[in-house]
Nucleic acid binder design. Structure first.
Lengths: 205, 205
DNA sequence: GTCTATATGATGATAGAC
DNA sequence: GTCTATCATCATATAGAC
């Protein structure tokens, strides 16, 4: 009796894991409880034993997708040492994360578009707040003369936008596969933050 | 008979005008034909006399919302003269547009998240392509040493992100109403592009 | 061109057997 | 804890009267 069946406790987690890509792809309104149930391999009724309703399942799924993702990122900013080295490490890590975990990015986009204020607020509380605060505090240290809040927004936008727009840039001329390389994106952004466009060319240093 | 009834021809446009804020707020899946019909003041069946189906109504609504918005923006980039003056004018105009027309921004976000590839492509064709190409060509002129495509993405991201994230930043500390001032946002971005963070402080020049 | 009425199916959620 | 069966409601879309 010391050994419990390992399968039993995992049902709830299994639901979350399977529903994350669904919500990430088509959003809250685009996913039905039937879809999730089918992805898990149960009937829709079974889901209601683990989650009170669809909204709670969604909130838990988003929280599940973000936990253990934002923590390590925040740590990169907290450490001491050269601020420019830290911001470069943060940007590089974030770019690699976004490139590898596409669901992560899309869930963030869905949160930004959520029109249910109560739901959006609870998502922000569990997902965005800590990381944004850490980045804003770091921005204040990195560039004391600038508005830290505004600068934090700029940094996040610079990193996220290449990935957010990838699905449409595919169709545009001048698009090459290598433009999605997270390391190259990070170098581009750090160069921009350091010197603006007046600095040394990134292509011909 | 030389004078036609001015009301008759406007029905189609009326539907588009009323449906744009609905689609902008809750997206394609969040709006029903009943919602649109109610907003216009007709029955759902009447909508099908003007649009073959919901998707066509959506595509036309997005096109309607973007026409006469992107054209003037593109013109700002095409003109000759000092490139830095032109990019500043473009960024300032775009920021003011985004601040004034919230539906415009949200529709763009929905397009970026659209999981229907055929639909997304047709939206990109009628909405994004021209403006992005103009900006990319301009970026090539502004900073010949940089990857023009990448730089165009960075510029768009810098301008759009303060507005895209406004709905969640409301809940975060350090948020002040004045951070949404499009003129201040534009100055911040131009300063960043010119000098990076190493330049003269924007707050204490 | 808009209406009433309706076909047809998907949706979130629940009751009760096992 | 999961199932079958079902409810009530909502969805897109159409047919045909006016």
């Amino acid at each position: 009796m010391a050994e419990k069946a390992p399968k039993k406790k995992k049902m709830r987690e299994e639901v979350l894991e399977r529903s994350v890509p669904l919500f990430a792809t088509v959003g809250f309104d685009g996913v039905s409880m039937r879809d999730i149930a089918a992805a898990v391999g149960v009937t829709p009724a079974a889901l209601y034993h683990h989650f009170s309703d669809k909204e709670q399942l969604y909130l838990d799924a988003v929280g599940y997708a973000f936990e253990e993702k934002v923590g390590p990122l925040k740590t990169l900013l907290d450490g001491g040492g050269n601020p420019w080295e830290r911001i470069e490490a943060f940007i590089t890590r974030l770019a690699n994360l976004l490139a590898a975990e596409r669901d992560f990015l899309r869930l963030m986009q869905w949160v930004l578009l959520d029109s249910d204020e109560r739901r959006q607020r609870s998502l922000v509380d569990c997902v965005f707040r800590d990381l944004f605060n850490a980045l804003r505090d770091f921005a204040a240290e990195l560039a004391p003369g600038h508005d830290a809040h505004r600068l934090a927004v700029s940094i996040i936008g610079l990193v996220l936008y290449p990935f957010e727009t990838q699905s449409v840039r595919r169709f545009l001329p001048g698009y090459t596969h290598q433009q999605e390389d997270p390391e190259a994106i990070a170098r581009h952004i750090v160069g921009l933050l350091r010197n603006g466009l007046g600095g040394i060319n990134e292509e011909n240093p």
